[in-house]
Amino acid sequence: MDRTEDTEDTGMRPRTAEAGRRTAVWIASVDSDEPQLLFATAELLLEAPNWSHDGRSLLLNGAGRLWRLDVGTPSGLVEIPLDGVPDINNDHVLSPDGRTVYVSGMDGHLYAAPAAGGKGVRLTADDGTLHFLHGVSPDGRTLAYVEIARGVAGSPGRLALMPAAGGPGKAVDTGEGHLDGPEYSPDGEWIYCNTETFTEAPGHAQIARLPAAGSVLRRVHTSDTVDWFPHLSPDGVHAAYVSFPPGTLGHPANLDVTVRLVRTDAWAVPVRTFPLFGGQGTMNVNSWSPDSRRFAFVSYPLDGRAG
Rank of each mutant, 00 (worst) to 15 (best):
M1I: 08
D2S: 15
T7H: 14
T10M: 15
T16K: 10
R22K: 11
S29A: 14
S32L: 13
Q36M: 14
L38P: 00
T41G: 05
E43Y: 03
L44A: 06
L44W: 00
L46D: 00
L46M: 09
A48M: 07
W51N: 06
D54G: 05
R56A: 10
S57P: 01
G62L: 04
L66W: 00
L69D: 00
V71A: 06
T73L: 14
S75N: 15
L77H: 00
V78M: 08
E79C: 10
V85I: 10
S95E: 06
P96T: 11
T100W: 05
Y102F: 15
V103Y: 00
G105I: 03
G105Q: 03
P114G: 04
A115I: 03
A116Y: 02
G118K: 09
R122G: 04
L123W: 00
T124M: 10
L133I: 03
G135H: 01
P138W: 01
P138C: 13
A144N: 04
R150F: 00
A153M: 14
A153E: 12
A153R: 14
A153T: 09
G154E: 08
G154V: 07
S155T: 05
S155D: 05
P156Y: 04
M162K: 01
P163Q: 14
A165Q: 08
G166V: 03
T174H: 04
G175M: 11
D180Q: 14
Y184M: 14
Y184E: 08
S185G: 06
Y192S: 11
C193W: 00
C193A: 15
A201P: 01
A201W: 05
G203M: 10
A205E: 02
L210S: 01
V216F: 02
H221K: 14
F229I: 13
L232V: 10
S233N: 06
S233Y: 00
P234V: 12
G236Q: 05
S243L: 11
P246K: 13
L249W: 03
P252S: 07
V257K: 03
T264N: 09
V271W: 00
P275D: 05
L276Y: 00
L276I: 09
L276Q: 03
F277S: 07
G281A: 13
T282Q: 09
M283V: 06
N284K: 12
S287K: 07
S287C: 13
W288R: 12
W288T: 06
S289Q: 08
P290Q: 08
S292Q: 07
R294F: 02
F297Y: 04
S299G: 08
P301L: 08
L302D: 04
D303K: 13
R305N: 13
A306Q: 12
A306G: 08
